[in-house]
């Protein structure tokens, strides 16, 4: 493994996967997209029924298709995750002993058991993760880092009344993103300096690898702390004292399309969540349907 390619990876990750474009999703206010994304993730974690997770999946895909981003882009997001998901689902379906209790055995071979519960849990796992991956993707391809930060800040601003330091949190994220390239540069310098003295960071394992990495980690932390001091001084010199009394260059306004989009989404998502909880065993009456 070469240090180069690792670093390029990190830069890519830090800048995000933003693809400039003119789809409806690109046009929407970042706040709307953040709400949609967070609600999708939370719903995916909450739902416990196969039909609900399927509906959530359909919802994400229809958002992506309906707004002109395209389903192709969305499914591409699943590709790197798919093989791992498959492995996990297989483990979940066959090899988790707890899922054998109180369950109907569907199929059995030596130590492998497939029960109704294990099938449900395997399908749920795939569905849940697919929804979350696509929700994150939907958000990140259509929103630049800058919009993200402004969006988060405005979104949590009302919470400042109850003491949540919204602006300060957004600022922390901001500084993190800003600091990544600096860290990259400083670490490259450190690695180069140490490599010229014969260090090789890619090799070895366990304690030996640690011995090699410590002379990198310690200065990395110390340099970062020193830089942090400099950044703080520069911010203070420009009258920064936190969010209070601060104004913004931009005055973002929610448009009608934003209200419509968020309204439609909340209605759909709410319906799915409600269905998930409402249709209990009592309503459906049969165990097989209840599992769905």
């Amino acid at each position: 493994m070469t240090a180069r390619s690792e670093f390029e990876f990190s830069v890519k990750l830090s800048i995000g996967q933003f693809v400039p474009g003119s789809s409806l999703l690109h046009m929407l206010d970042p706040r709307v997209k953040i709400v949609v994304c967070v609600m999708l993730i939370v719903s995916a974690v909450l739902v416990g029924r196969i039909f609900a997770v399927t509906l959530l999946f359909v919802l994400v895909v229809s958002v992506l298709v309906g707004t002109g981003v395209g389903a192709g882009l969305a499914f591409r997001a699943l590709r790197p995750v798919a093989p791992f998901l498959a492995v996990l689902a297989v483990i979940q379906m066959f090899a988790i002993p707890q899922l054998r209790e109180n369950a109907v055995i569907v199929w059995e071979w030596r130590f492998l058991h497939m029960t109704d519960r294990s099938i449900v849990s395997g399908v749920l796992l795939i569905g849940r993760f697919a929804v979350i991956v696509m929700a994150l993707h939907l958000f990140s391809v259509t929103t630049s880092t800058n919009q993200l930060i402004h969006g988060v800040e405005q979104l949590v601003r009302p919470l400042e009344k109850i003491g949540v330091p919204a602006h300060e949190l957004a600022m922390v994220v901001h500084i993190s993103l800003r600091f990544l390239p600096i860290l990259l540069f400083e670490t490259e310098k450190l690695m180069m300096a140490q490599a010229s003295r014969g260090a090789d960071f890619g090799k070895g394992r366990g304690v030996r690898r640690l011995r090699r990495l410590f002379p990198l980690f310690v200065p990395m932390f110390l340099i970062s702390l020193r830089h942090a001091e400099a950044i703080a001084e520069s911010m203070e010199s420009r009258c920064y004292t936190g969010g209070r009394g601060r104004t913004s260059r931009l005055r973002p306004r929610l448009k009608r399309a934003d209200y419509l989009a968020i309204g439609a989404f909340i209605a759909a998502d709410g319906a799915i969540l409600a269905a998930n909880y409402l249709f209990s065993e009592a309503v459906w009456g049969s165990r097989a349907l209840c599992i769905l």
Binding site: I175, F179, A228
Partner: peptide, 16 residues
């Protein structure tokens, strides 16, 4: 200000 910056910088190290 110092707290904000240190949180940001340490967060960046973790991500990095």
């Amino acid at each position: 200000v110092r707290k904000i910056v240190i949180a940001g910088v340490m967060g960046a190290i973790s991500v990095f």
